[in-house]
Design a protein around this nucleic acid. Structure first.
Lengths: 342, 342
DNA sequence: CTGAAAGCGCTTACAG
DNA sequence: CTGAAAGCGCTTACAG
């Protein structure tokens, strides 16, 4: 049997309360007593049972997740992941409230942040929008000691405690390398479809993509990026038009999340007998189908579940004033082709 | 506050013990009583606190992991993952004993399995070798009700309860698609380096690889597979020889784990001014370096940590007679290029 | 078939 | 500065 607090208390010749004080670095213990307890812990190789500790503490962590009520599949998945995490939260003693805000609305978002700060919250996770009122709201929260973590989309130059999301420039670089290599030595033009280039993730992906393209694939030229605004008909017509206007377009990088319009456009393109090597983001029922049918060649994905769980771990650590293990919280960019779909 | 057993007991007008009996589907409860309790649970939306339950049960799961004492980096990582899981096992009440067996020795492995069965074990995870004595040992264990999970390498046509590892034919297909697409329309020969084709994983990877190559890349011909036996000098000389013998060799798929010899050979090849598009398995310090330096083009990876945690979850479920959620236990094949390295 | 009581490993007021 | 006792939410003999 592993040693318990009782064993430590006996070994050190003190009471349970004192053992607890030493273990949790609480004040009010004589140096000499502290040493005795520490030696006992060391000697018996004691490791605390966190589950029992949590049970006894009865402490719970009421967290707030602020999510945009977007239509796209990825956001739906993210929301589902939060709900699921909340259901599993019993053991972890977490308890999540979801706050919905209109998408792409910086003022609504900053209001929601401030409102969340007025509730009994132990920490806030937020899908950020790059805007000063948002930065300001985050500053107020963190100033008051409320941990704030950005989720999926970061807020640069802000006081947020952590970013739980992928390295977006790296995602863009990954897309560029794969697209460049799939097209090997061919010459041609590459289309780029963004949701909106005023969103930081998309900017960053585009930057990473352009960088690698310029450095390694001089045979390929990038066309001016299109902005589909997650709008099906708009994205579709933009892509169709680009395909028609640029007969030399042989590749396409879709760095946003709204894939439906893109897929429609690619279907039309295929019907005309043209194939465009395409890399898109986020795995969903639709994008998966497109990958399986060969309409997409690669899907880059961020795992919503991982992001949510990471955000919670970090919020908890911050709430407890603990350090975050950076390496453990890095969110991976998954590459999927039709052969390694999960 | 979430309802507890006390609330349920009060609501149903019974004692804690009875609530517990109903919750855990233990016998000896009158139908009428059971219904009362179930209704109370339903009404209050009760969800059991697993951590508290485990604490009270004091139940622990002594599992046995049988691992080959291979030299390669992947096995070292797997071992580390087991040790780490064991350290975190306090909350989960798991307690893992690692048993070492000589690599590639079926008799030693079957002996180890039977020996593990004689200890106080709640379940066994094993890196399997395809051989009848092993199958026979597994049959004896499962017959006695001891759960057995194969890890990383499966044992086909056996009575093992579960396989915690990647879909190896899919891994081979993934390699083929990427290699074929990177080589685009070029003509040439593809080398294949295996550890040993008598190991099931390697057979399966090779089969998946060959299938896709034959179906989609008629411009590429597969050379007879080489067997490097995880032996540095042997693998190196095999590859060097193949490169020299086949001036048209433009691609290489290394489906085993011993990457050091391969890397040495590729360095020599590069020094001679030839570049071979190479896909290898398993991320380690060495393979990562090779990827970064461009010696490798892609690394396919299985996450040892995921595999170990999955094996433990499954063993626990089996030990408790619970069902396994298959989708949750699927182990992913990760694709790494230099841009999305974690 | 059912219940009262003790206990899992920890923490927390409260007293001294 | 230190300790005795109660309690977190559950389970388990033991008695009836």
């Amino acid at each position: 049997m592993r040693p318990t607090v009782h064993d430590i208390a006996a070994e050190a010749g003190v009471s349970l309360a004192t053992v607890d004080r030493v273990m949790n670095a609480r004040p009010g213990v004589r140096e000499k007593t502290r040493v005795k307890v520490e030696q006992a812990i060391e000697k018996l190789g004691y490791v605390r049972d966190v589950a029992a500790a949590n049970l006894a503490k009865g402490r719970s962590y009421p967290f707030t997740f602020i999510l945009p009520c977007n239509e796209n599949a990825f956001m739906a998945e993210l929301r589902a992941a939060v709900i699921q995490a909340n259901e599993r939260g019993r053991i972890e003693r977490t308890q999540i409230t979801i706050v919905d805000v209109p998408a792409f609305d910086a003022d609504a978002l900053s209001d929601a942040l401030l409102a969340a700060g007025e509730t009994d919250t132990a920490g806030i996770a937020v899908v950020a929008i790059e805007a000063d009122p948002v930065r300001e709201a985050v500053r107020k929260l963190t100033e008051r000691g409320i941990p704030v973590v950005t989720l999926v989309s970061d807020l640069e130059d802000s006081t947020r405690d952590h970013y739980a999301g992928v390295d977006n420039p790296a995602a863009g670089r990954t897309a560029a390398t794969l697209l460049g290599r799939f097209l090997d030595a061919r010459n041609g033009a590459i289309g780029v479809l963004a949701g909106s280039l005023s969103v930081r993730d998309h900017q960053n992906r585009f930057a990473g993509f352009s960088q690698i393209m310029a450095a390694h694939f001089p045979n390929l030229t990038i066309l001016p990026p299109m902005e589909g605004r997650d709008d099906l008909p708009l994205a579709r017509s933009l892509v169709c038009e680009a395909v028609d206007t640029h007969p030399d377009m042989i590749g396409l990088y879709s760095l946003g999340a709204g894939n439906r319009g893109l897929i429609a456009a690619l279907e039309e393109t295929r019907a005309k007998g043209r194939e465009i090597v395409t890399i898109a983001h986020e795995l969903s029922v639709h994008s998966r189908e497109a990958l399986e049918s060969g309409l997409f060649d690669v899907i880059l994905n961020q795992d919503a579940g991982h992001e949510v769980r990471s955000a919670i771990r970090v919020l908890k650590a911050k709430a407890d004033g603990l350090a975050v293990i950076a390496a453990q919280e890095r969110i991976r960019i998954d590459i999927f082709i039709k052969d390694n779909l999960p």
